[in-house]
């Protein structure tokens, strides 16, 4: 197995996104590419990443392998790469991860025993969809955060708004379809869902810089799925369970 990236931004974004949920990560490499799927320890959020072989400058994988890393240790190495530096990873016979950063930095990092079990994906229909720039979404999360720990998303036909409510007050941000940062608002049924900013904010910050447009899909009182479109990466799906009246 060997994979070489083109620049370091995509791998940084992936590792940064994963680091918002877990401390240890198991990646699966197959002939098709590298994937990761995992949940945070309290099972509120799930990340599903698929990184196709076509996104790499060089990629080879003769037989399927799993390898586990401590995300903070891996992250430290990856951060030593400049934007343009490629990062090449392979696995040594001594079961170490070989990480070549740029042309001349050759790291060896210990792998951890991977305890990963197959995680399924939430099976839910999505009634509503909002596509907007990640920078706009990041700004909206910041706007809501000043009064609330939770983001409520509401759609009705082709209208939508984000809102939040807390001890100090509340906010409603109407989405303007003429805004060039907003690509689409659509709903098969009026939908309203509330989601924790504690989970949303870090992942949007982590991937936001590399993602252009993001797609939020949800249904009333059902999980939110955010798709980050990163130029070179197949997909990053982030699932977040809702908060519901109890």
């Amino acid at each position: 197995f060997g994979a070489k990236t083109n620049g370091s931004d995509d791998l940084k974004a992936i590792i940064s996104a994963i680091s918002t949920l877990v401390e240890e990560a198991t990646f699966v490499a197959t002939a098709e590419g590298i994937s990761f799927r995992g949940m945070d320890p309290s099972h509120v959020a799930l990340i599903d990443i698929s990184w196709p072989n076509s996104a790499f400058e060089k990629y080879e994988c003769d037989s399927d392998i799993k390898f586990g890393v401590r995300i903070d240790e891996f992250s430290k190495l990856i951060k030593r790469a400049d934007k343009k530096d490629s990062i090449e990873i392979s696995i040594s016979e001594q079961n170490m991860l070989l990480v070549t950063v740029g042309k001349n930095k050759k790291y060896k990092m210990r792998l951890i025993e991977s305890s990963a079990t197959d995680t399924p994906l939430p099976k839910i229909p999505y009634d509503s969809k909002i596509m907007l720039s990640s920078s706009k979404f990041d700004k909206i999360l910041g706007d809501v955060q000043v009064v609330s720990d939770y983001l409520t998303i509401h759609t009705s036909d082709s209208k939508g708004d984000f809102s939040g409510k807390g001890d100090s007050g509340e906010v409603v941000i109407d989405l303007d379809k003429d805004d060039e940062d907003i690509e689409e608002i659509s709903s098969k049924e009026d939908s309203v869902g509330t989601y924790s900013l504690e989970y949303l904010n870090p992942v949007v910050k982590a991937v936001g810089n590399t993602a252009g447009v993001i797609t939020c899909e949800f249904s009333s009182a059902k999980p939110l799925r955010i798709e980050f479109k990163v130029a070179n990466i197949g997909r990053i799906h982030f699932y977040l369970a809702p908060r519901v009246e109890s």
Binding site: H43, Y239, A241, V244, E245, S246
Partner: peptide, 11 residues
Amino acid sequence: SQGQRDITSYF
């Protein structure tokens, strides 16, 4: 009041 749901309950 509101409660946080678990993502695994949608598997």
